[in-house]
């Protein structure tokens, strides 16, 4: 359906390539020799039981954590162990499993400061409200996540679900090529979950997305491809149909 190969007319290179990624915390191996790649335009779901290493994987990709060994290649460049600010500048954005925003700033300011990391970041002598390009970028990001009416609220005063969406808004404002969403619907009501999944579907049209999500029917419907983690290893990798029919996946994951 959404095949980048058709769009570009040539076999495309993966946007993200993971080679032998291993992370150990003392004696615990959180990720063990993980290999897979993600093509541009995919909506890739990462699933797996609690503690399987999904968040650890995101931490490596976004430079929060330096892997014990292995390589992460993004857009043709080796980004292994690069600090998270550099990874962000290269085009990877991330929303967190545990809400991670500026609670004492307004919703608008949360998003504008993210947009500002791409332009005027060092400007010191002009009022930050006077940059129209920043304001427009922030407004468009808020509009995408449906928070424009709440722009002037303090972020701390938003509902949990709204804060989860603000996370995504902040990530979008950095104009990423790859967006990593770590359980964006965690703690949301069914209605909010539905809206957020719709939101992800909308933004997926011009981004590559990695998403961790526990709701299986939703994942099956949303993802173009699924990677299953189990005890830090890739158990299976394939289309939703393949994953559904994979007996090992059914054994360790779907039936629990």
């Amino acid at each position: 359906m959404r095949s980048p190969a058709d769009r570009r007319g040539a076999a495309p290179a993966p946007i993200l390539q993971i080679e032998g990624l291993t992370v150990r915390f003392g004696g615990l191996t959180a990720l063990n020799d993980v290999n897979f790649s993600v093509m541009p335009g995919e909506v890739r779901a990462i699933i797996g039981p609690n503690g399987a290493g999904k968040s650890t994987f995101f931490n490596c990709v976004t430079g929060v954590l330096r892997p014990t060994s292995g390589r992460i290649v993004f857009d043709g460049k080796n980004i292994t162990g690069r600090p998270s600010n550099e990874v962000s500048q290269r085009g990877i954005a991330r929303s967190y499993q545990i809400t991670n925003i500026l609670p004492n700033a307004t919703v608008f300011e949360n998003v504008r400061v993210a947009a500002q990391s791409r332009r005027h970041a060092w400007s010191m002598l002009r009022d930050r409200g006077s940059f129209n390009d920043l304001n427009e970028k922030a407004e468009s990001a808020l509009n995408q996540v449906g928070l424009l009416p709440k722009a002037q609220e303090l972020a701390a005063n938003l509902s949990h679900g709204e804060q989860r969406n603000l996370e995504i808004g902040i990530a979008l404002a950095t104009e990423p090529k790859l967006l990593c969403l770590d359980e964006p619907t965690a703690g949301m009501s069914a209605a909010e979950t539905h809206d957020t999944i719709e939101l992800v579907r909308r933004i997926a049209s011009n981004l590559t997305i990695l998403i961790v999500e526990h709701d299986m029917p939703l994942v099956m419907e949303l993802a173009t491809r699924i990677t299953v983690f189990h005890y830090g290893e890739v158990l299976a990798d394939g289309s939703p149909a393949e994953i559904r029919d994979n007996s090992r996946v059914q054994e360790v994951y779907l039936k629990t």
């Binding site: 600010n85 991670n100 925003i101 400061v113 993210a114 404002a173």
Partner: peptide
């Protein structure tokens, strides 16, 4: 604003670039 963002949430400030 970046300075204030560092004060509020340093890791997040780094993560947005």
């Amino acid at each position: 604003m970046v300075l204030q963002s560092i004060r509020e949430n340093e890791a997040r400030t780094r993560a947005i670039g």
